[in-house]
Simulated assay, not measured.
Amino acid sequence: MQKTALVPHLHLPRAHHDRHVLTSTVDVFGTAHWLLAERAPQPRGDVPPVDALVVSVDPDGDVELTELSGVRGRRPYLDRLPDGGFVVAVSRTRRYEEAKQVQVFDVLGRETSSFSVGDAIEHLLVDEAGHIWVGHFDENPVGIRRWSATGRLVWTSDGARIPGLFDCYALNVSGTTAWACPYTDFPLVEIRPDRPDRPVTVWTNGIRGAHAVAVHGDRVAFYGGYGEEGDRLAHGRLTETSVEPRDVGLLTLPDGSAPGRRRIVGRGSRIYVQAEPFTAWGVFDLSSCS
């Protein structure tokens, strides 16, 4: 089976390797961010708010540090707003009903607002307009929603006629467009809320279980799957109504090894992958494939 190696993208500066990585992401502009704490939180019980450091590394390698006060959650979600602020969120609402689930910080690291977006967050990604896209897993099957940075619901998949939208397995946000591949039917879905005549386009798809998707023109790639297909990289082409499957191979780390435990972020034609110890991002770019 053909193997495709990730290309090294960005890494956490070595000076910060002594801190614990709470989470990490790559934003819509290709900048990588690490949310760091002095020590790992306890594996069980309530987690008190902590002061955390965001280390941001842009595509040119420039480093920026932002201190955030009172970050909640053991394994939060993180993304950057276009104005330089940050969004931090916990997946579950059970312990954060009073304090709210989503925290918004300004460019100086001060919390400016908080709100809830619904239990069971699986994906949280900010778009170029500063809207927050949230995909949920099956313990709260509300689908996919787009929120303002002040907590106003601006788009919802309710009534969008997305077949089998029970668990948002894959979510890709680039520009102001989102792509999704949800369980149970795994269609490929394009969402453009700013196109009122046709905000949602759906293609049927036989590639099941992918946890990331990349799109470039009429080409699409799905990463991940069930069981032994966890490292699968499946290519396809878009017809008028369906995804036509093409090549199937494996996606590896730059050295050719399997990623193991990983974080994944989809952004347009790119799939970013970060393996333990979560200090470096690699990238697969569909636009670079012949």
Rank of each mutant, 00 (worst) to 15 (best):
L35N: 12
C181K: 00
H9C: 03
Y226H: 15
P187S: 00
R208E: 13
V283M: 11
E240R: 15
G143P: 05
V220T: 11
W133A: 07
H235L: 15
A180E: 00
R246I: 00
L250F: 05
V63K: 05
D62A: 14
L165N: 11
D18M: 04
P193C: 02
S114V: 04
F186V: 01
H33F: 06
D231T: 08
R146H: 02
A149L: 03
E244D: 15
G256V: 12
R262V: 06
P43F: 10
L250G: 04
G135M: 08
S56T: 04
F29L: 15
V220E: 08
H17P: 01
R261M: 07
E97S: 08
V248H: 07
P82H: 08
R195T: 09
A214V: 01
G151D: 05
P277T: 11
M1H: 12
V88H: 05
F105V: 11
G260H: 08
R94W: 11
V220R: 14
I132K: 05
R237N: 10
D255C: 09
V47H: 12
H20Y: 15
P49K: 12
V265F: 02
G175H: 02
R232A: 12
V117C: 13
D62G: 04
L81C: 04
P8K: 07
G282F: 01
T177Y: 00
W133G: 06
G217R: 10
R198Y: 00
F222K: 10
R161H: 06
S174V: 01
R145T: 14
E98V: 15
A212L: 05
Q274V: 03
W179V: 01
G130N: 06
S114D: 14
A160K: 10
G227P: 00
R14G: 07
A149Y: 00
V55R: 12
E98S: 14
S56L: 05
I121A: 03
T112S: 03
P141H: 09
H211G: 15
T93G: 14
G209K: 11
V47Y: 10
V202H: 03
E228C: 00
G151W: 04
